[in-house]
Amino acid sequence: MNNKKLKARDFVTTGIFSILFIMIFFVCVMCMSFIPYTQPFGLALTALVAGPVYMIMRAKVAKPGGIMLFGAVYALVMFGTGGGWAIPVAAVAGAIAAELISCAGKYRNFKLNTIGYAVMMVAVAAGSYIPLLTMKEYYLELAAGNGVENDLMTQIVEFISVPYLACALAATAVCAVLGAVIAKGMFKKHFIKAGIIKEVN
């Protein structure tokens, strides 16, 4: 990298990909929310489908601060759309962890970028679903304030358990890795050009 500082173009690129990622997130969560039993796997589906978006963003903005900028945008949107405080906090914490992990590979190591992505998505999933066990009343009130059907949230809160959430978090990690692998297949030439993966003859 000739210039390690984020430029105006990097902010715009990160912003565009962040919004695209968030749009995919809302669609995936909505699709998984029709049935209470699948709702905790909304982040797993997001991690899979949005993996290529995140990884191509890493290729285009392979500079310090890019991941934290993504996390900040994600956190602000989640908070602004009534997601409470736990999800934004988890998103920022996950983005910081992902930033440190990717930084260890100078932002151009596919494996470390993938691990960072998985860690970040698991953190967001934890911030989204663990409070349903620890702050049930708060989230029922939050959901009611956001116009979510009370019966749906009540069912989710009632059946969610520690083992079930552990499965959801594990699924999120696995789907994040799969999403990154899919991205590698889709954008192999771009990743080679960006120096994230090496060309194999």
Rank of each mutant, 00 (worst) to 15 (best):
N109P: 07
A126G: 12
V122F: 03
G84W: 11
A123S: 13
N109Q: 09
L142N: 14
I96L: 08
A144R: 14
K111A: 12
W85F: 09
S128K: 10
K136E: 12
V148N: 15
L76E: 02
G116F: 01
L142T: 13
M121R: 02
Y117L: 07
E141W: 13
K136N: 08
V92N: 08
I87E: 04
G94L: 02
K111I: 14
P88W: 05
A144L: 13
L152Q: 14
K106Y: 02
E149P: 07
V73Y: 11
C103L: 02
E141A: 15
F110Q: 11
W85V: 11
A143V: 12
V92L: 14
A143W: 12
W85Y: 10
C103D: 00
L76R: 06
T81D: 05
V124M: 13
L132C: 08
E149D: 15
G116K: 03
R108G: 03
V77P: 05
E137Y: 06
E149W: 10
F110E: 12
V92W: 04
V89F: 10
V122E: 01
Y107D: 04
V89Q: 06
A143S: 15
M78Y: 04
A118M: 01
A86E: 07
L133I: 09
E149Y: 12
S128F: 11
A143M: 13
A144D: 13
A86L: 06
I96Y: 08
A125L: 12
V122M: 07
I101A: 09
Y117E: 00
G105Q: 02
A75S: 06
A91W: 02
E99W: 10
V92C: 09
A86Q: 08
V92A: 09
V148F: 15
G94W: 02
V77T: 06
V73G: 03
A98R: 08
T134L: 14
P131T: 02
G145L: 12
A104F: 01
G116E: 00
P88S: 05
K106V: 06
L76V: 12
C103T: 00
S102G: 10
I96N: 01
A123Q: 03
Y129C: 09
V92Y: 04
L142H: 14
F79N: 04
E141K: 14
M121K: 02
D151F: 15
I115Y: 09
A123V: 03
Y129M: 12
A126T: 11
D151Q: 15
V73P: 05
E99N: 08
L152G: 14
Y129F: 15
W85S: 05
L132M: 12
G82D: 10
G147K: 13
W85Q: 02
V92T: 05
V124C: 11
A126S: 13
A104H: 01
G105T: 01
V92S: 09
V124Q: 11
K106P: 00
F110L: 13
M78P: 00
A104L: 04
L76Q: 04
D151R: 15
L133G: 07
L142I: 13
A91N: 01
G83D: 03
N109C: 09
A97I: 11
Y117I: 00
M120F: 04
A126L: 13
G84L: 10
N113Y: 02
M78S: 04
T114I: 06
N113W: 04
I130L: 15
G82A: 13
R108C: 03
A95P: 07
L140F: 09
M135N: 09
V89Y: 05
G83N: 10
D151W: 15
L142A: 14
